[in-house]
């Protein structure tokens, strides 16, 4: 794949803040809103309430799941990703390919065949 830079962000399917929140959540797996906020704060100017909105949105999109945890600190949501990074990448590719096939039909399929054959020859 010479000359092609693979973008490890998912800005085509996620907003920049959703992307940043997921980057924090993937390695640590289970986190509270406040912990995610604490991790994001040094690198970007963001409010706690904005992080809460983004996490709820990711939950609605089915990217993260949440549970209510009751501990010494009171009642808190614990968020965790439903897919790891690799699985999420696959689902993004799957969605993108499906939308291309839906839009361009046999032209897209022919192009993919041609392109995959080319890749195999390499």
């Amino acid at each position: 794949m010479k000359g092609i830079k693979f973008n490890t962000d998912f800005e085509s399917v996620l907003s920049p803040l959703e992307n940043d929140v997921l980057k924090v959540l993937w390695p640590d797996r289970r986190m509270k809103v406040r912990h995610i906020y604490d991790r994001l704060r040094p690198s970007r100017n963001v409010a706690l309430s904005s992080v809460a909105v983004i996490l709820d949105r990711l939950h609605q999109k089915g990217v993260v799941e949440r549970e209510i945890e009751t501990g010494r600190g009171g009642v808190r949501y614990i968020y965790f990703p439903l897919k790891d990074r690799a699985q999420f990448e696959k689902s993004v590719i799957d969605t993108t390919v499906n939308s291309l096939i839906d839009k361009f039909g046999s032209t897209a399929v022919a192009y993919f065949n041609e392109r995959f054959a080319e890749e195999r020859r390499k």
Partner: peptide, 15 residues
């Protein structure tokens, strides 16, 4: 009634 989202945002004194 308090929402879990509210308790997520507020500290003890705010709650």
């Amino acid at each position: 009634f308090l929402s879990a989202g509210l308790l997520d945002l507020l500290d003890r004194k705010e709650s």
